[in-house]
Design a protein around this nucleic acid. Structure first.
Length: 746
DNA sequence: TCTGGCCCTG
DNA sequence: CAGGGCCAGA
């Protein structure tokens, strides 16, 4: 029923058309319905670990996910295969030695755990059996001899096993284990014929226990635990051998207290110690299913905090890696001019500035002048110019607009001319690097005189020194507004998971990070304002904070304006339950729809139904949602036209610009006024990182409008239709995360 | 006739 | 953002 028109027929559904390429570009994994997954996108190291935890099903889904990754050629090997004793296969790609080590240890860990248990049991067990069978005193001596030998042998084997365990769990664990084992051995040799009953356990019993420890229910958690620990231990792994001898000595001496003291110093392993001391040992000593379950429980508990630490470290790592790269986001619509010669005042960068109006500090959620601009737009719409080149309409000085020509020398795309800004952001692997080339306006008008180029990350990436200048008659562009808060971006489900599994206060100050490294395939790229943790983390401090701070007043969506249909505050988090569907649309749905607009401007009814699973669709609801997107588009196009007209006016006021025309292009950077307005409108709370693809689409639209206006096509009453048609083909697949019912926090 | 898109208005 | 009018395609 996608009837209307030229724009929408199923065969040309842009979503499907772009699905294969886009899937791997923007989000890594967000297949279209019915389209196979594509996971070739960049994955930050450590991501698989984190990602699995983010799955709605929780860590339990790790196995299937790993399989998927393997199928997709990702380097992570199936962990369950290792457990099963699968032969050692080389890690494809060899991308990460750490992974290799981690996996290997994961395998060893389970085997060794079994062996160790048996070993411990066998020591006492053999002892006991032999003693009972041979009552004679001579026998006892011989027995002692044998026992000593066995003990020695056991020691060696234990040593080996413990080393392996240590590799997996870290040195501190090992020390702890050694300490325990030493005590145990002492007890055994001292008591001699002491224990009974429990130690009568057979190996079959042991098998049952260990089997229970790794049964299907717990295997995932255990696996995750191992992976986590392995990852954590990696840093200390290198000096393992150095310290090995020392540890052995200490073990010989049995200086438990000293070990204890050392262990106190490493807070990182505190939880692991508890795990071992309490549940691990408890599991072994108590035996039986309870022990296994206890152990499993401990693993699960520990999992959360361990993962948190991993994530914390990853965040920190990437933050450090990319701190400088993020320095100054770009902004301004630029007329890209590779061969610019006009101004040349600045690194060859010629700038056409339509003045950026003084930018107020960009406060998340702040209003700015977006609304004002919007109001003025309606008039602009009627301001169609007469046929022929658009003439100098009076410059609208009140319009904040930054138009510049970027000095960079990117190679022009055959169709697009110079590549879009995306290509200048190397540290944005998850962005739309693989999107199909965006169309370019057929006739680009001559360009505009240049002004100094404001800081533009995209261009400064190549010409870092090009930012400062004061060459043209235009005032130097004001400093770029704060970047769009490239801070810890957490999918709301991730936040939820985090806040549940990580009540640890230290996690409330996750270091600032960059979404580009953190947002894997299915992430909604939510960010938090600087210095603010994710809202759901804040919720641990004060649930009201989340509810109030995260609530956006949505007008006219519902009378009650509240969250309906299962909205709950779960553990202090504002989160819509995905349980049942609701008849009406909530502010959350509107918010989500707006975010979806970043990807799809023309969603079909089916798409909407797919991505709002918690909405009970009927004719009214469907049309309302369609109306929403219609309104979104309207706003979008109004802004495009507005800025295009302004750019045209600017161009006309500067003679000589005409020669620059061809290869120039309008750009929509993250610091342009246009971007700011769009972001304000669709992403008011600014918790979502606008996908690069949307900027590209905006650029296309802007250029199309510019071209049409410049060439006078706007005199045709239907002049916008062609532009609509172009834009509707640029829809991207929606990230999988949007399929989730619920409401984005923030 | 229905659906959905655009435009205009409030 | 919603309502209403208009239009076009199925």
């Amino acid at each position: 029923m996608n009837s209307p028109s030229d724009l929408f027929d199923d065969s040309s559904q842009p979503v499907r058309a772009f699905a294969p390429a886009l899937a791997s570009a923007d989000h890594g994994v967000h297949p279209q319905p019915g389209v196979g997954r594509s996971t070739h996108a960049f994955r930050p190291p450590g991501f698989p670990l984190i990602h699995h935890l983010l799955q709605p099903g929780g860590p339990r889904r790790i196995l299937s996910v790993n399989r998927q990754q393997e199928e997709d050629g990702v380097t992570v090997r199936r962990v369950d295969e290792d457990i099963d004793g699968g032969e050692e296969r080389p890690v494809e790609g060899g991308k990460d030695n750490l992974l290799q080590v981690k996996k290997r240890h994961g395998a060893d860990w389970s085997e060794d755990a079994l062996k160790m248990k048996r070993m411990k049991l066998r020591d006492g067990e053999v002892e006991e059996r032999d003693k009972r069978r041979e009552g004679g005193r001579d026998g006892k001596r011989r027995e002692k001899e044998e026992l000593k030998e066995q003990l020695e042998e056991a020691k060696e084997r234990l040593q080996l096993l413990q080393e392996r365990v240590w590799k997996a769990f870290g040195e501190k664990h090992r020390e702890e284990e050694e300490e325990k084992k030493a005590k145990q051995r002492n007890d055994n040799s001292r008591e001699g014929d002491g224990g009974e009953g429990d130690e009568e356990m057979t190996e079959e019993d042991e098998e049952d226990i260990t089997g229970g420890m790794y049964d299907e229910e717990d295997i995932d958690g255990g696996q995750m635990e191992k992976e986590t620990f392995s990852l954590l231990a990696a840093s200390t792994f290198e000096d393992f051998h150095k310290r090995k001898e020392d540890r052995e000595l200490r073990m010989e001496r049995g200086r438990a207290s000293r070990l204890e003291g050392e262990m106190e110093g490493s807070g990182m392993w505190m939880d692991c110690r508890e795990l071992l001391r309490g549940d691990w040992n408890g599991g072994m000593e108590d035996e039986g299913e309870e022990g296994g379950q206890k152990f499993a429980q401990a693993l699960k508990l520990e999992l959360g905090s361990a993962v948190a630490r991993v994530i914390d470290r990853v965040l920190r790592l990437y933050t450090e890696m990319t701190d400088h790269a993020l320095s100054s986001p770009p902004a301004s619509i630029s007329f890209h001019q590779p061969d610019s010669g006009l101004d040349g005042s600045n690194d060859g960068g010629a700038w056409v500035g339509l003045l950026t109006r003084g930018r107020q500090e960009e406060v998340p959620g702040g209003k700015g002048d977006a609304t004002a601009g919007h109001d003025g737009e309606k008039q602009l719409q009627k301001l169609s110019l007469p046929p022929g080149p658009p003439l100098r309409s009076e410059p609208d000085q009140s319009m904040p607009l930054a138009v510049h020509r970027s000095p960079d020398t990117r190679k022009p795309h055959p169709l697009l001319g110079p590549p879009l800004s995306t290509h200048l952001h190397p540290p944005q692997p998850n962005l739309s690097l693989h999107h199909p080339p965006l169309p370019r306006p057929s006739a680009l008008p001559p360009l505009i005189p240049s002004v100094p180029q404001p800081k533009d990350p995209s261009s400064s990436f190549h010409t870092p020194s090009s930012s400062s200048s004061s060459s043209s008659s235009f005032p130097a562009p004001p400093p770029p507004p704060p970047p769009p808060l490239p801070l810890p971006l957490l999918h709301y489900s991730m936040q939820q998971l985090f806040s549940r599994s990580l009540p640890h206060p230290q996690l409330h100050h996750l270091p600032p990070s960059r979404k580009d490294y953190l947002s894997p395939d299915s992430f909604l790229e939510f960010s938090s304002p600087p210095a603010f943790p994710p809202l759901s983390l804040l919720s641990h401090l004060d649930p009201l904070l989340v509810r109030h701070g995260g609530r956006e007043r949505e007008r006219g969506v519902r009378g009650d304006g509240g969250v309906r249909g299962g909205g709950v505050v779960d553990g202090g988090e504002l989160y819509l339950t995905g349980g049942g569907s609701q008849e009406g649309l909530s502010p959350c749905h509107l918010k989500k729809a707006k975010l979806m607009f970043f990807y799809t401007r023309y969603p079909s009814s089916n798409t909407l139904k797919t991505y709002f699973p918690d909405v009970k669709f009927n004719r009214c609801v469907t049309s309302q949602m369609i109306k929403w997107f219609s309104n979104f588009r309207e706003f979008f196009y109004i802004q495009m036209e507005r800025f295009a007209r302004q750019a045209v006016r600017e161009a006309l006021t500067r003679e000589g610009a005409s020669r620059l025309g061809r290869d120039s292009q309008l750009r929509v950077g993250r610091e342009t006024e246009l971007y700011r307005i769009l972001n304000m409108h669709y992403n008011k709370s600014n918790v979502y990182q606008v996908p690069e693809r949307f900027l590209e689409v905006s650029e296309v639209a802007l250029r199309e409008f510019y071209s049409a206006i410049w060439t006078g096509r706007d005199s045709d009453p239907c002049w916008k239709k062609g532009i609509y048609k172009i834009i509707c083909k640029l829809d991207s697949p929606l990230p999988e995360a949007f399929r989730m019912p619920g409401c984005p926090v923030g």
